[in-house]
Amino acid sequence: MNVSGSNVSLAQRAWAIRRNALLMGEVQGQGYIGQALGVADVLAVSYFHALSYRADDPEWEGRDRFYLSIGHYAIALYAAMIEAGILPEDEIGTYGMDDSRMPMSGMAAYTPGMEITGGSLGHGLGIAVGAALGLKRKKNPAFVYNMLSDGELGEGSTWEAVMSAVQWKLDNLIAIVDFNNQQADGATTHALAQVPEAAKWEAFGWFAQTVDGNDMDAVVAAFDAARAHEGAQPRVIICNTKMCKGVPFLEDREITHFVRVEPDEWAKALAILDEEKPQ
């Protein structure tokens, strides 16, 4: 089972996830660190409040599944799984290296606890739908959580999966959208015409919530409500997150999909984070 019953707070877990991600980014001098810092609070709630799992048995049949559709967010998920004890801390220095169990893009064949190979973008929710349906047919009460990006909401395959989940009444499926308003070609809200996202999901038949993804209490409440919802329908939590959250000089930088960090800035970012460690 997870370790949410310990005396370590969710804020401390999120801090550790951010720190682990920065240490891995420093190894390669690059990485999708803006996304990792932004989504750390959501991952802390996922792994230390919501998910049922056994750190020493990632293949446990009774586990809740966490599917990372966004393969380039692997640095963030590794950081969370290291904090959870699924991956050992002493492998941080191998990030992105040859023969590492932590390649720069998430691949299920390499990494314990990495349930799917993320990408091409837009496929993760479809895989999650199939898994949720399979668990239903096996009468396994586990939940499937699928983290996808705001950019993936422009993929037709995502909306095919959205409709399929409603058709099969997959109340064991919880989608988590990291809405940081950035994708490779610029702001997500400029890429395609946007309507209020929760209303769109609701129109398709989902139970939808929108939350500040960096407000820990709000994220906890949204996860609890999603899991407790009694309707025979899938659930989605749209998490508005701030890129580079927790490192002010990066937060204030002109944000793009890939945040460049200079060689001397990794240590500076770590020092700032260490000064703000939650008690």
Rank of each mutant, 00 (worst) to 15 (best):
T158R: 03
F143Y: 15
K169R: 15
A225P: 05
A131S: 14
L170H: 07
Q182T: 04
G151T: 06
I174E: 11
Q194D: 00
G231E: 05
I127G: 02
R235E: 11
L173D: 10
V195K: 08
D215K: 02
Q209R: 12
V211H: 03
D185A: 09
A184Q: 13
Q182H: 09
H229K: 06
L133K: 10
A203M: 12
D217L: 10
G231C: 05
K169Q: 14
N214V: 09
R227F: 04
F207S: 04
A187I: 00
T189N: 14
Q233E: 12
L173M: 08
N140Q: 11
F223D: 03
D185K: 00
P141Q: 15
G186E: 05
D215C: 02
R235P: 01
F204C: 00
G126W: 06
L133H: 03
A193Y: 12
F204I: 06
A225I: 05
V211G: 07
G130K: 05
A128W: 13
Q183W: 01
T188N: 09
A198H: 10
E160N: 09
G156K: 13
D212T: 01
L192D: 14
V195D: 07
V211R: 09
A161V: 04
R227A: 14
M216V: 03
L148K: 03
V211Q: 08
V211A: 03
S157K: 03
T189E: 12
L173V: 05
A184R: 11
A228L: 15
N146G: 00
P196E: 05
E230V: 12
N214Q: 12
L170G: 05
Q167A: 15
W201N: 01
G205P: 10
E230A: 10
E160V: 04
P141D: 14
L192K: 10
E197L: 15
H190E: 15
A232E: 13
A131Q: 13
K169E: 15
P196G: 07
A221T: 06
G151H: 03
P196W: 04
I174Y: 10
F207P: 01
V220M: 09
T210V: 08
Q182F: 00
Q233Y: 08
W159G: 14
W206L: 02
V219N: 08
A142S: 14
V144T: 14
A226M: 07
E197V: 09
A191N: 12
A226G: 03
G205W: 06
E155S: 10
G154I: 06
D224S: 10
V195I: 13
L148I: 15
A187T: 01
V144F: 10
E155K: 12
S157T: 14
F179C: 07
A165N: 06
L135Q: 02
F179N: 13
T158Q: 07
G231W: 05
E152S: 07
E197H: 13
G213A: 07
F204D: 07
D215G: 04
W159H: 06
L173C: 13
V195C: 02
W206N: 01
N180D: 03
F207Q: 10
L135P: 00
L133P: 02
A226H: 08
E202G: 01
E202V: 09
A198M: 01
N140D: 11
